[in-house]
């Protein structure tokens, strides 16, 4: 029971660390206003390029992409912040399981991302006149959960990578942009060269966006399940890579008696 309590309290603490930089007005501006405007931007662009009034596909896709903000940008710097605030040495030195540390940091980010995605989807849908009748909300929600899970995994993996470099923002921006392009939220990735299409399979959101689009018809059970399992499996891979990387860094840090690895 103590373990569960500790897990929850540490998750809340990790959430506070992410949200601590904002007061209410800034939270509304950055997490709500900016994410919504980003969604609106891509949907208006889609309207202009296609001339279509049915922007459902873009609202669905871009609302999922919104999780990049919390998952990649916020989570991608958590271990850097830990180092900055002097907490990393305790994490490395403590006997606590590193995988638990990673998961604790992911929980709040996943919940925040899920809230952003769902809110963005509903508000975006209302703005762009998406017809919600006949929509399977469960199908969308499960896809959104899978998307936020894998994106948070990638964020944490990036956070581990960030400990090896002083160019964390450069890397996070490149990753976020690649996710945006390869997600298929704004255009079918079949338009891209084969190499990029294969690359899309190892980046988050590609499968989740395809799955979420099934919430408005063309629902194929087998295909949907495969996409969701694929997205979650990808997420698990990211968490495991983050774990292995941190384990290696832990060993190196203990051996060299230093956490400054770059």
């Amino acid at each position: 029971m103590d373990i569960v309590k500790r897990f929850i309290s540490q998750s809340l603490l990790a959430g506070k660390a992410i949200l601590g930089a904002f007061d209410l007005v800034q939270f509304i501006c950055y997490q709500v206003g900016l994410t919504l405007l980003t969604l609106i931007f891509y949907c208006v662009l889609a309207f202009f390029t296609t001339g279509s009034y049915d922007l459902t596909r873009w609202v669905v896709g871009n609302s999922l992409v919104l999780c990049v903000n919390s998952s990649i940008y916020s989570l991608g710097t958590v271990f850097i912040s830990d180092r900055h605030f002097g907490r990393l040495r305790f994490i490395i030195a403590s006997p606590m399981n590193l995988l638990a540390v990673i998961l604790q940091k992911g929980v709040i980010a996943i919940l925040m991302s899920l809230g952003t995605v769902t809110g963005g989807f509903i508000i975006g849908g209302l703005i762009f006149g998406v017809d919600f009748t006949g929509m399977n909300f469960g199908v969308f929600l499960l896809a959104a959960l899978a998307a936020t899970f894998s994106a948070a995994g990638m964020g944490l993996m990036m956070s581990a990578v960030a400990l090896l470099t002083d160019s964390v923002h450069l890397i996070l921006n490149i990753v976020a942009n690649i996710i945006l392009i390869l997600s298929g939220a704004n255009f079918p990735i079949t338009q891209l060269p084969m190499v990029a299409q294969h690359m899309a399979k190892i980046f988050p959101l590609h499968r989740a966006v395809a799955a979420a689009n099934m919430s408005f018809g063309n629902f194929e059970y087998n295909k949907y399940v495969l996409l969701i399992i694929g997205e979650i499996a990808l997420g698990i891979c990211f968490y495991l890579i983050a774990f292995v990387m941190l384990k290696i860094m832990e060993k190196v840090a203990i051996k060299k008696a230093s956490l400054e690895m770059f």
Binding site: S167, N173, I178, L180, I181, F187
Partner: peptide
């Protein structure tokens, strides 16, 4: 380094995104 992203990488990303969105437009 962040500026290098804005200067060197961001134009590439924006070009690909816009070119693909404007394809068939």
């Amino acid at each position: 380094n962040m500026y290098k992203f804005c200067l060197l990488v961001s134009p590439l990303m924006s070009t690909i995104l816009l070119a693909e969105m404007y394809r068939n437009s």
